[in-house]
Amino acid sequence: MTHRIPPDRGGLFQSAIAGLITTMVGFVASFAVVLSGLFQVGASVEQAASGLLILSVCVGLSTMVLSLRYRVPISIAWSTPGAAMLAALAPGVFGFNQAVGAFVVSGALIVLSGLVPSLHRLLTRIPVPIAQGMLAGVLIPLCLKPFTAVATIPMPALGILLVFLLGLRIVPKFAVALSMLAAVGFGLWHIGRTATWDSLEVLPQLHWVSPEFSWQAIASISIPLFVVTMASQNIPGVAVLGSFGYTVPWRASMLVTGVGSASGAFFGGHAINLAAITAALAAGEQAGPEPRLRWRAAASSGVFYLVFGALSALIVSVASASPEGLFQAAAGLALLATLANALLGAMSDSIWRLSALATVLVAAGNLTLFGIGGAFWALVAGLLTHFIVERSVRR
Results as ranks from 00 to 15, higher is better:
Ser30Asn: 07
Ile351Met: 08
Cys143Gly: 08
Ala330Gly: 13
Ile221Gln: 03
Leu35Ala: 15
Ser301Asn: 13
Pro6Asn: 12
Ser300Asp: 03
Ser106Gly: 08
Ala151Ile: 03
Ala32His: 05
Gly373Met: 00
Leu293Met: 14
Val105Ser: 04
Ser106Thr: 12
Val59Arg: 06
Pro224Trp: 05
Ile272Leu: 09
Phe164Met: 11
Tyr305Glu: 10
His386Leu: 04
Ala49Lys: 07
Gly137Asn: 12
Gly302Thr: 05
Asn366Asp: 13
Val318Pro: 09
Ile272Thr: 08
Phe31Leu: 14
Leu188Glu: 04
Val303His: 03
Leu161Gln: 12
Ala319Ile: 14
Thr148Glu: 10
Leu200Glu: 08
Ile315Leu: 15
His386Met: 03
Phe96Lys: 11
Gly332Pro: 03
Val389Asp: 03
Ser79Ala: 08
Leu225Trp: 02
Ser106Pro: 02
Ala231Tyr: 00
Thr257Trp: 07
Leu55Phe: 03
Gly10Met: 10
Leu52Met: 12
Leu306Gln: 07
Leu68Asp: 01
Leu344Cys: 01
Asp8Pro: 00
Arg4Met: 14
Ala313Ile: 06
Gly101Phe: 13
Arg391Ile: 01
Ala330Thr: 04
Ile76Leu: 13
Phe226Thr: 06
Ala381Arg: 06
Ala151Ser: 13
Ala287Arg: 08
Glu46Thr: 05
Gly60Asp: 09
Gln216Arg: 10
Ser179Leu: 03
Ala329Val: 09
Ala334Gly: 15
Ile140Thr: 11
Gly237Ser: 05
Leu354Thr: 12
Ile218Gly: 02
Ser62Lys: 06
Ala329Phe: 12
Pro81Lys: 07
Leu188Val: 14
Val41Gln: 04
Ile130Cys: 02
Ser56Glu: 07
Gln98Met: 03
Val389Cys: 14
Phe164Gln: 14
Trp78Gly: 14
Pro156Ile: 05
Ser243Lys: 14
Ala182Gly: 11
Pro236Thr: 10
Gly114Tyr: 04
